[in-house]
Design a protein around this nucleic acid. Structure first.
Lengths: 243, 243
DNA sequence: CGTCGTCAAGAGCGGTGCTCTCGTTTCTTG
DNA sequence: CAAGAAACGAGAGCACCGCTCTTGACGACG
């Protein structure tokens, strides 16, 4: 197939002609308005026509910048991943490097705080995939930012000796193989058992946010703040980061 | 307000006049077709008009049975909760009562198997709430079935002495108060620390399913079956049910 | 027998995603 | 510098959506 005439995200030249600058500006404005609509009414109610009206365009004109509603939604997904990633990264960076347990807990706190402040954007990335899903490649990079912060904490704490190795070991060869590949590709010298518990703690961090935000703890927990602190303390101990 | 003329789920009389029987039958047929559409195309693509066409009705006739598309969707949510609950209950009931660890793991396995077999229905209940959510009261009963199975396992294993009490304790008075209320209302004599770990394991069971089904483990885990077994083994030990 | 409630159907409203055409503006290239 | 190419915004239009209202037929019940 020929090169698509309508570029989705950025023009071919970095910041070239005047036309490309105004184009990039309009793409940004459309995404901004769409992000506001998403935050206000949720992904299901996001209407390309309504966004176009707010921008001051007719609906068909938006198709010069986003080939479909799903592409616009994908841009918002990338947007949300980056916003969450940045919130987590800046929060974690402010913590004493040596206090690895606090660094880990801070990641969870920042993720939960962002999720509560932006529930619709959070639901877009950690809820059910909206249409027929099939996440494009653009999303994988931003999607991994939080996981990479957690990885760095585990790596730092292992190399500094601040991490207690768990007593349990991977129970099957298949799991061990996956963890071994992760150890080789992303971790350095971190034991497979530590990585296993790290992945479990990672899913628990977001599983807890999901359960709270989606109402599954409704009749169970009343003080969500205190409960999430409990969850964090348990997970810090679970991965072996408690002092 | 007066009693709504169009009943949503069932007629006022149990199985009364002929008219009410054919009405209940039609309600069932509409939900059946809607469930098939949901399973095939997802909740976002569920169209009341398309369902009506498949049933052999005109779209406006469906409004005699469901006052809005959201009410039809709510019926499907209750449906999904009951299907998942029944799958979990029957699977758990087939396990030796004394083998509490296996009973716990079986709950997780059955939930995951059902979720993988019915991803759209699972996403409907454990993904992001679809429209403006506000889950009606009809849903709370079916929604608690899985949690109650887990509760029974914890209660049985504690009373039989098969459960190791965790060494950690709730870290704040607020959490302790919530757990104490749960202990009084739903558990009997089970320590608060055990309940805390039970709730954490519960969210981990579904958090793991969410991460797998929604693609967050894409570049992390390749053998999902083996990984979930690892998760189950860790959680069984975490709540103190390992032999 | 007549009345009244229930029912399916149809027309219609405003909204949606998306496509195509048309006239204009801007950039590029000879 | 001028001609052609590319990009652009606007508009009309298609098929579909949820939902409302009205109409006429049917059956139960006094």
């Amino acid at each position: 197939m020929p090169t698509t005439p309508t570029q989705t995200t950025a023009g071919p030249a970095p910041a070239g002609s005047a036309r490309q600058r105004v184009r990039a500006e309009l793409v940004r404005e459309i995404t901004d308005v769409a992000r506001r609509h998403l935050a206000a009414d949720g992904a299901a109610a996001l209407s390309l026509r309504a966004v176009a009206r707010d921008v001051g365009l007719v609906s068909s004109a938006v198709y010069r910048y986003f080939p479909s509603r799903d592409h616009l939604l994908t841009a918002l997904i990338v947007d949300a991943y980056n916003a969450l990633g940045e919130a987590v990264e800046t929060a974690e960076a402010a913590v004493d490097r040596a206090d690895v347990g606090e660094r880990f807990a801070t990641v969870g706190r920042a993720a939960r705080a962002w999720a509560r402040a932006n529930p619709h954007q959070y639901g877009l990335i950690y809820g059910s995939p909206v249409p027929g899903y099939a996440a494009p490649d653009d999303t994988v990079g931003p999607a991994t930012r939080v996981a990479f912060v957690l990885r760095d904490i585990l790596r730092d704490s292992w190399s500094s000796g601040a991490l207690r190795a768990p007593t349990t070991m991977p129970r099957s060869a298949a799991v061990w193989a996956d963890l071994h590949r992760l150890a080789a590709d992303f971790f350095t010298d971190v034991p497979e058992a530590v990585i296993a518990r790290g992945v479990l703690a990672w899913t628990q961090l977001f599983g807890g946010i999901n359960f709270e935000l989606f109402g599954h703890l409704h009749t169970v927990i009343t003080d969500y703040d205190a409960w999430y602190e409990e969850l964090l303390a348990e997970m810090v101990a679970f991965v072996g980061l408690d002092a």
